[in-house]
Amino acid sequence: MESLTKNRQTPATLRAMIERAYGPDEVPGPATDWCTELGHGWFNVAYRIRLRSGALVVLKIAPPPGVEVMTYERGAMATELAALELIRAHTTVPVPAVDFADRSRELCDADWFAMPFIDGDNLGMLRDTLTAAERDAYQEQLGAATAELNTIRGTAFGPLTGPGSDSWRTVFTAMIGSVLDDGERRGVGLGHSYAGLRALIESRADSLDEVTEPRFVEWDLWDNNAMVRDGRIVAIIDHERAFWGDPLIEAGFTASELPAFGDSKAFMRGYGHAPLTPVEQIRRRLYGLYLALIMVIETEYRVMTDPGHLAWVRARLDEAVALVTAT
């Protein structure tokens, strides 16, 4: 995917990164086929690297400091590193190991880290080739993996790297408020007034008070962030949007209120979640609104111009606003 935030580096810089992470003996030789950009992500740039030994690894590099990102994306690589550490320490959910992380800004202008390459297929790219039964089986696995991730308990709501709050209502309203602030700052037209959206959110915010225990939330666990092989998930990737929050905000629940995102039944079956209560339904609709606002506003920050994508995300925002209004 093409995006303004992708911080591409020269072969010379990539070689220097390899030397720092794996030592001089692993720097690739003169061949030209040692490096391939992995293109499916929207935010960070990632390269598949063949080391001199033949081992495959990935270098992931954060956006350059001069590119304006949305508020919730600031410090995303530090969040991802914290998330990987938590997941590996407290769950059996498969995630890549971190071979080396560098936040010195000495070799390039941003944070970066190195990890083993995952031998598998990206579920999002594979999805259209699967039968309905195969898709459901993977969604059940995603549900089970998400449920296990959500067993990790935190001490406060908010960013993994802090600061936090003992109130989910305070944290979530600040999260969605910052997205609206980002949109206003760049003059993004939403088809709905910013003041009206803030009032709508506040009028439903008491539903958030039901959430009293901070849990690890992956939030971005879509098909595109699952690597699969031989019918099973072999790795979950891209953890930079994780936080301490309400598990019901997880991506797999989105379709329970926004049908354009698919069918949530298999995910919920794998997760082990009962049908949503009325208060959970209100919260889930607020979370759908949060996602829809991000999808629309990020098009300005990422300079996305595909008319089909722009029309689709704006339709989702209209749908999300209508659902929250109807509760």
Rank of each mutant, 00 (worst) to 15 (best):
A89C: 08
A89W: 09
A89T: 14
H90C: 11
H90E: 15
H90Y: 14
T91I: 06
T91M: 05
T92V: 13
V93H: 12
V93K: 14
P94A: 00
P94G: 02
P94F: 00
V95T: 15
V95H: 08
V95F: 07
V95R: 08
P96S: 12
P96T: 04
P96D: 07
A97S: 15
V98P: 09
V98N: 10
V98W: 04
F100S: 12
A101N: 15
A101E: 15
D102N: 14
R103A: 12
R103C: 03
S104D: 14
S104F: 03
S104M: 08
S104G: 07
R105P: 00
R105T: 03
R105F: 05
E106F: 05
L107R: 13
C108Y: 07
C108E: 09
C108T: 15
D109W: 03
D109N: 10
D109Y: 04
D109S: 12
A110E: 13
A110D: 14
A110K: 12
A110V: 06
D111K: 04
D111V: 03
D111H: 09
W112Q: 08
W112F: 14
W112V: 07
W112C: 04
W112S: 05
F113D: 13
F113C: 11
A114W: 11
A114Q: 11
P116T: 06
P116C: 05
P116M: 02
F117Y: 14
F117C: 10
F117M: 09
I118R: 09
I118V: 15
I118K: 03
I118N: 04
I118L: 14
I118G: 05
D119V: 06
D119P: 00
D119H: 06
D119S: 07
G120A: 10
N122Y: 08
N122A: 11
N122E: 12
N122S: 10
N122Q: 14
L123W: 10
L123D: 03
L123F: 08
G124L: 08
M125H: 11
M125E: 14
R127W: 10
R127S: 02
R127N: 01
R127D: 01
R127L: 02
R127K: 03
R127Q: 03
D128R: 11
T129Q: 12
T129P: 02
L130R: 09
L130A: 05
L130D: 08
T131L: 01
T131F: 01
A132L: 13
A132Y: 02
A133H: 03
A133S: 05
E134V: 00
R135F: 00
D136R: 02
D136K: 00
D136H: 00
A137N: 13
Y138A: 01
Y138S: 01
Y138Q: 05
